[in-house]
Nucleic acid binder design. Structure first.
Length: 736
RNA sequence: GCGCGGUUAGCUCAGUUGGUAGAGCAACCCGUUUACACCGGGAAGGUCGCAGGUUCGAGUCCUGCACCGCGCACCA
């Protein structure tokens, strides 16, 4: 039959993809409410909201591809599929980015601008960034429901955040306390334990005595903190120091009076250094805990700017690093310094700003992860996070991440949720004080009456993203959406945010809704560059998915990212691989050309799945073969083996269907008999099903081809996934 | 220190429950009167990190070791 003139030229992804996406959007079929047929069962994915800090990278591209594959597959299987997109305000990351820019361009700090103006500027930036990201997601072919799009910092999500905060506050899960926290002097805010990255550096360790009369030598890499020491701790069974335990000394250390008590504590490692630890409660996590156990004072000697708060002119107000040198010099001249040695050290730095983290005591808001919750049978948040994975309600793919997850929970401490930045959900607590008393009010909205002042701090961005699976569905309102789509089915995300986000979603959903947030966690690895390096701005080795789409087509980029990339493992971006799949799209294009060239209109009329194919027909073997492969692929899809499914369909289409079946066909159709007609019918039949199976991986080219094939009324995205391959029994046939 | 993952063809990686090793790219030979050169045909290439064990049979399960990567803890 006559061939569409489009097919005479090579496939042009750029022109096609934009047009097809528009077609899909206009069809309204991304929205589950508009899907045809009686769809009882829902299938839901909440898109991990990209940060509004910039542009999409290849990691996002992989995420979008995987989720789109699952959604398209389930949509074709007749599920009520909801893929809800959104973006994340990413509090610290976004604010620090805008602050940097303003500092660079205008030489102004956020304090110069003031809270209101600063928030406006960040808001503008976020909006712009949001628009870029959304358009990029569309280029990738994401079939998500834009009518339900959400933002972690919009009004609806704010209502959810305040409602949860109040519930936790009333339950005593959230408390305000003066505790040691991780302070980022660069970002001027607290950060959680999980926002720390460790960098290995060499440091000098100094061994010395506080004074000539002091009986024990101690070692430290941070002599400047020693002006805040209150004790020397030794191991309870360390014979060397046994007789000194309990003794107290008043000393002057580099001009600062200190009071040192010698105590015994199991946390001390007798083998390390001198086996004695100078305890600085205010500036070391572990020392803070020792101080807890021994009821020691906790003088703060370093402030929020990493400068000294005590001492004489020689150190007061100096940066910690400068003070260190002064103190070392003093030790030297006093003859107290016994040893200096190089050692490897892990320095804690803030993930977002790179600032060196300074542990400090501060009044902050915390979530208590160890408090028994009455309404939940006295289980703690830790237990609520652990249980659904333990009892199999939630499965992680790949499975081995279970252990990492449990291990993290074991080591979990109370979660510091308050941040001293402006961009974010403000802590919904108000204070009012007069001569007689001070009041604190926690509520979803501001209290009535005069004189209330809201807490200045904002909340950790993960506090709001933890509610993502249900805040997006309208909670706290009991919406029908919530009923239909929660718990969601799959949470697909990068393995690096298992703790940050995934665990927090389990926490929030279990605590608030008393149900799991999702049934399956699918983790993908990191997409690296050709040399195996992580893509980063500083290295300048990032690849923009848009460039790939421009050069090879989004389809090619998608299937290249997925094929051969097992769950949880890192992958490398390889232009040759993508190019190969660009060729594959063209191959499909030309297969279509051949098929249409070969068959007649009448073959389309008889191509119904079971029409014309009888047991004993010459077609049975190739139909049976395709049936087997397609069933295999379906099973791979069900078990999240997309990296295998895509390879199978690719291989079948190119090396079986094109290279062999089509080549045979050329011979067969030379004789114009029944066999030849059967073969033509088979070509159409199989090719149409190939397009369906390939569609989740390469949605654009398959949809375009589908529209060219005669007789296809529906868009391919809602065609039925091939499942039934029953061949007609002769008895069921109407023919004699 | 504890834990997790990796080690398979020159390169990048697949390999579901144990049953004679796979893909892409690269390299080699041949082929162009048209579905496609963004192509076709053919051949080549691996003692599956090492050493044991279980089994009729191990890339796959068990034990130990080595190297690489990562997470957590420590980091006085």
């Amino acid at each position: 039959m006559e061939v569409n003139p489009k097919l005479l030229k090579p496939y042009d992804p750029t022109e096609t993809e934009a047009r097809i996406y528009k077609l899909w959007e206009e069809s309204g079929l991304f929205n589950p409410d508009n899907l045809p047929g009686n769809r009882e069962e829902a299938f839901t994915i909440m898109m991990p909201p990209p940060n509004v800090t910039g542009v999409l990278h290849m990691g996002h591209a992989l995420m979008i591809t995987l989720e789109d594959i699952m959604i398209r597959y389930k949509r074709m299987q007749g599920y009520k599929t909801l893929w809800l997109p959104g973006t994340d305000h990413a509090a610290i990351a976004t604010q620090s980015k805008v602050e940097k820019e303003i500092q660079k361009k205008e030489g102004k700090s956020r304090h110069d601008l003031g809270r209101e103006e600063m928030l406006k500027r960040i808001g503008d930036f976020a909006q712009q960034s949001h628009d870029t990201i959304i358009s990029q997601i569309k280029v990738m072919g994401a079939s998500c429901d834009w009518s339900r799009e959400a933002f972690t910092l919009d009004d609806k999500r704010n209502l959810a955040v305040n409602t949860v905060f109040k519930k936790m506050y009333d339950d005593g899960i959230i408390y305000r306390g003066n505790r040691i926290i991780n302070w980022d002097p660069k970002g001027q805010t607290t950060i959680s334990d999980d926002e720390i990255v460790y960098e290995e550096r060499t440091a000098k360790m100094y061994t010395f005595k506080y004074s000539k009369d002091f009986p024990i030598s101690i070692s430290t890499t941070r002599p400047e903190t020693k002006v805040g020491d209150v004790a020397v701790a030794v191991h309870p069974e360390d014979k060397r120091y046994e007789n000194l335990i309990g003794k107290e000394y008043d000393l002057i250390f580099c001009g600062v009076p200190i009071h040192i008590k010698i105590i015994a504590d199991k946390a001390v490692e007798p083998e390390f250094g001198t086996g004695a630890l100078g305890v600085t409660p205010a500036h070391s996590m572990i020392d803070w805990e020792i101080a807890d156990r021994h009821d020691l004072p906790r003088p703060q000697v370093i402030n929020e700017y990493a400068k000294m708060m005590v001492g004489g002119e020689n150190i007061l107000g100096k940066k910690t690093t400068e003070a260190r040198e002064v103190i070392v010099e003093w030790l030297r001249t006093e003859g107290l310094l016994e040893k200096e040695e190089e050692m490897k050290q892990n320095v804690s730095t803030a993930e977002r700003t790179g600032g060196i983290v300074e542990p400090l005591p501060k009044l902050q808001w915390f979530i208590n992860v160890n408090k028994p919750i009455k309404e939940r049978g006295n289980k703690t948040l830790k237990e609520l996070m652990r249980e659904p994975l333990k009892n199999g309600e939630i499965k992680i793919i790949p499975e081995y991440f279970d252990k990492t997850y449990f291990h993290w929970i074991e080591n979990l401490r109370d979660w510091c949720i308050s941040r001293q930045i402006w961009y974010g959900h403000r802590v919904p607590v108000w204070y009012r004080a007069n001569e007689n008393n001070s009041e604190t009010y926690c509520g979803v909205v501001a209290p009535e009456g005069e004189g209330w002042k809201q807490d200045e701090d904002t909340l950790d961005t993960w506090f709001s993203s933890g509610m993502w699976t249900f805040s997006t569905l309208g909670w706290p309102e009991q919406t029908s959406n919530l009923k239909t789509y929660h718990p969601t089915d799959v949470l697909e995300t990068g393995s690096e945010i298992l703790f940050f986000w995934v665990a927090r979603m389990v926490l929030m959903s279990e605590y608030v809704l008393e149900e799991i947030p999702f049934k399956t966690i699918y983790l993908h690895g990191t997409v690296r560059d050709g040399q195996g390096r992580k893509m980063s701005k500083s290295l300048g080795n990032g690849i923009d998915p848009l460039d790939i789409a421009q050069k090879f087509g989004a389809d090619a980029g998608r299937i290249a990212l997925v094929t051969g990339t097992a769950p949880g493992t890192d992958s490398r971006i390889d232009e040759n691989k993508i190019k190969g799949y660009k060729n594959f799209a063209n191959k499909c294009w030309n297969i279509t050309r051949f098929v249409l060239d070969t068959v007649d209109e009448s073959n389309f009329e008889t191509q119904g799945r079971t029409l014309g194919i009888q047991k004993g027909s010459t077609l049975v073997p190739i139909i049976e073969e395709f049936k087997k492969i397609s069933e295999d692929i379906t099973s791979d899809m069900e078990n999240y083996r997309f990296h295998i499914a895509s390879e199978k369909i690719y291989h079948y289409i190119w090396h079986r269907f094109a290279d062999e079946i089509i080549e045979e066909t050329k011979e067969i159709i030379k004789t114009k008999d029944e066999k030849s007609e059967e073969r033509k019918t088979a070509l159409i039949l199989i090719w149409k099903d190939c397009l369906k199976v390939l569609h989740p991986f390469m949605p654009f080219v398959t949809e375009e081809i589908w529209s060219i094939l005669p007789g296809n009324k529906n868009l391919l995205i809602i065609e039925k996934w091939p499942t039934e391959f029953t061949l007609d029994e002769p008895s069921n046939d109407n023919r004699p």
